[in-house]
């Protein structure tokens, strides 16, 4: 059923995609940084500190999206026992942890000059920290559980239970009073970010996505080789 995802079919595709991304990444990164730091205008209240948004928002989105995809694949893996999904999850987890940490760090560097505090215990920030711990436990389980069957079970459990946190993060700003502002961009509503800032934001999101794809493909390739190496002897 999930044959199209078999490592043997996509190995060459991974090679090609990696080469392609490597060739376009740096030009796009430079354009993105120029827009974020120089060309985009300062905000009418926040001034130049708004430029941190171009890092903070894409990081948070990718941190959430990684966990959501991992939870989805874990559920499929649990139901259909497709081993390959486990490899994908293992490759996604470090990307998610990286960007969740970055969202928190850039967020506090943004909070200090605008709110007046690096950190507050409001619902949005706290739930984001909980997400970071879920990623942390997940990666620890990858590192320390050697028994493959047990590892698949434990990591699926962590991702599926952790996914309950995702709607809490998303709606924390609507359900409770928080210091963090509500969402500026939501489906079906016009964006509350002016186009002169929205396009740089989309560009930076593209940069972050390309980088994530690069890391993901390299990690996934490593996992494939690791498995095949074990199999050389048994063949």
């Amino acid at each position: 059923m999930f044959n199209f995802l078999l490592p043997s079919r996509i190995y060459l595709l991974i090679e090609k995609t990696l080469k392609f991304i490597n060739s376009v990444f740096f030009p796009i990164l430079l354009i993105g940084l120029t827009f974020a730091l120089v060309i985009s205008p300062p905000d009418y209240i926040q001034g130049d500190s708004v430029r941190i948004m171009y890092l903070h928002v894409p990081s948070a989105w990718i941190g959430l999206a990684c966990f959501a995809s991992m939870a989805f694949l874990s559920i499929l893996n649990f139901i259909f026992k497709t081993k390959n999904f486990f490899l994908i999850n293992k490759s996604l987890a470090p990307i998610g942890l990286l960007f969740t940490c970055l969202a928190i760090i850039t967020g506090s560097l943004w909070g200090k000059p605008t709110w007046g505090a690096f950190w507050v215990w409001d619902a949005r920030l706290t739930s984001m920290m909980v997400l970071m711990f879920f990623y942390f436990f997940l990666i620890l389980s990858f590192k320390f559980i050697k028994d493959q069957d047990k590892l698949v079970k434990v990591s699926s459990l962590i991702t599926i239970l952790g996914s309950i946190n995702l709607p809490i993060i998303k709606f924390s700003v609507d359900w409770w009073t928080t210091l963090h502002q509500p969402a500026s961009i939501s489906l079906g509503k016009s964006s509350k970010i002016d186009p002169s800032m929205l396009y740089p934001l989309i560009l930076m999101l593209l940069v972050f996505l390309l980088f994530s794809a690069l890391i993901f493909l390299m990690k996934y390739k490593t996992e494939i080789i690791r498995i095949k190496k074990k199999r050389i002897k048994s063949l």
């Binding site: 205008p41 300062p42 905000d43 009418y44 209240i45 926040q46 708004v50 948004m53 605008t114 709110w115 007046g116 505090a117 507050v120 210091l179 502002q181 509500p182 969402a183 500026s184 509350k192 970010i193 002016d194 002169s196 800032m197």
Partner: peptide, 17 residues
Amino acid sequence: EKILAKHDENYMPPELK
């Protein structure tokens, strides 16, 4: 004892405002 500023979700350049 402490004051924190809360900003809204709107972003725009000063000229537009």
